[in-house]
């Protein structure tokens, strides 16, 4: 494009000077200011240009301007709607996330509570069981102690009688009951059985 343009420009300048030279002999119609048509042309130009300017500035251009403004406002409105919708969507997503999180933590708490309750129940059960076993154990021990005490009481009596009989047989002396009992008690105490 460029070389062609330069070439054409070069040719043009040469030719226009040739044309200007030719004008001397024949006269350029454009420079023929004596011609009434050259003047009337300007008058008509003024009229046409003025009317065109008035029609364009008062009627045609505002129309195009309105269309452009309408388009701009439509696009702006659409973009605003998109922005609003996007904000609403973002808010909804945030709300959903928060709700999910809340539900999750609620469920977690419930599970923890249930586990806690179960643990407490188990502990309580174990405690009652232990208490019952302890009671039974204590009772059994008491019974054993009673039986032992009874057995020890019988032992003392048997030992006293046996000791009195043995003393009588061996010595012929009739040992008094209280002294025998005291001797037996001392012997038992010495053995740690009283």
């Amino acid at each position: 494009m460029r070389p062609i343009g330069l070439l054409a420009a070069a040719v043009m300048s040469g030719l226009s000077s040739a044309a200007l030279a030719a004008e001397e002999s024949k006269g350029m119609p454009q420079l023929d200011f004596g011609n009434v048509l050259t003047k009337s042309q300007v008058v008509w130009l003024a009229l046409i240009f003025f009317v065109l300017y008035l029609l364009l500035s008062k009627w045609a251009l505002p129309k195009v301007g309105t269309v452009l403004e309408k388009r701009a406002s439509t696009i702006a409105g659409d973009l605003q709607a998109a922005q609003t919708a996007k904000t609403a969507a973002d808010a909804a997503v945030a709300e959903l996330t928060a709700k999910t999180r809340a539900a999750q933590s609620g469920a977690q708490a419930e599970i923890a509570g249930a586990v806690e309750a179960a643990k407490a129940a188990a502990t309580a059960q174990a405690a009652t069981l232990n208490a019952r076993l302890d009671a039974q154990l204590a009772e059994a021990e008491q019974r054993i102690a009673a039986a032992r005490a009874a057995a020890m009481g019988a032992l003392r009596q048997v030992a006293g009688e046996t000791a009195a009989v043995v003393v009588t047989r061996l010595t012929g002396v009739h040992a008094s009951q209280p002294s025998v009992d005291a001797a037996v008690g001392a012997a038992l105490a010495a053995r740690g059985l009283a």
């Binding site: 042309q41 008509w44 240009f49 129309k63």
Partner: peptide, 25 residues
């Protein structure tokens, strides 16, 4: 009224411009 062919072309181009703007809008 000495209306030249040059003025006729002005008139035509004026109508073309107005037409472009009118039918364009």
């Amino acid at each position: 009224v000495n209306f030249t062919q040059s003025n006729l072309m002005m008139l035509i181009s004026g109508l073309l411009i107005l037409g472009l703007m009118y039918f364009g809008a």
